[in-house]
Amino acid sequence: MSRYIALRLLQAIGVLWAAYTVSFLVLYALPGDPARLLAGPDATDVTAAQLDTLRAQFGLDKPLVVQYIEHLGALLRGDLGTSLPTGRPVAELIGEAIPSTLQIAALGLLLAVLVGGGLALAATFTRHRGLGQLLLALPPIGVAVPGFWFALLLIQWFSFGIPLFPAVGNQGFASVVLPAITLALPTGATIAQLLSKSLVTTLREPYIDTAWAKGAGPGRVHLRHALRNAALPALTVTGLIVGQLLSGTVVTETVFSRPGLGRVTATAVAQQDIPVVQGIVLFAAAVFVVTNLLVDLVYPLLDPRIVIRKRRLPRVRVAATAGASR
């Protein structure tokens, strides 16, 4: 077990290193002049000498390989660099933004799991064919709706129409509700689609017939027998879902004028603040990697058929790659 965890940790570190490399290549090695970006989008009259000073200041005059190694070394010490317009450490900027984002992301995830899961269960549970079809038609709509538009509709209905929740800001619980609903929409729709699909296949399995034959009621068959198995495939995409929530905050926090990771990202992109953008990308990759690691470790607890053995891990390998692939 500990050997398995160590192996997975090494893999996780490998992915993070690769994510750093990819983001470095995209942000520093693509054709384009980082120094000109540093000077700012409006700086049209910078002289070549000024650009050279900037390059020297940020180490951009060194060869790419040297820059790459220097950045990597700083990263290992936990230093993500400094934001260009504000001059503050990137790690600090991200750290400050996390709590506010965590509030809406946590509530959003909760809503998504409850509503999405509930929808999938209700659609397979109902005896009424038309109602089931109607419920199954909802998730595709949820996936197709633009998040920023949905957020504006919510503001229009529940802030201006019926003044229930504030339209902007981060004061108290009421201000968390609408952003959380916005984040929950695509995520909940994804969960509902996955779960309803896997519930339908699970309910066709012979052991479900056995459960019916033994006299289990519909509630017991669905919740106790079918849901437990059907939820496992949905669990493997947790990493994807968390990533979806994280990228959803960019639009959501902009619309609701909330501070948080999404706002930091949007501002950094608008100001072409390369170190902050790289920090956010690395943070997202880290969240994805950690989530998948946790899912892989939790998986055997939920599905006793999966056993982490000392040497050969056939089934776990399948679960791990499935998690990483999406």
């Binding site: 992915v15 690769a18 994510a19 490399t21 990819v22 983001s23 990493g239 990533g243 979806q244 994280l246 990228s247 960019v250 990202t265 956010i280 990308v281 997202a284 990759a285 994805f288 990697v289 990483a324 692939s325 999406r326």
Partner: peptide, 12 residues
């Protein structure tokens, strides 16, 4: 490489 790219949300 694809694995790594998939670890980063596509919008980011």
């Amino acid at each position: 490489i694809a694995d790594v790219l998939l670890a980063i949300p596509s919008l980011l």
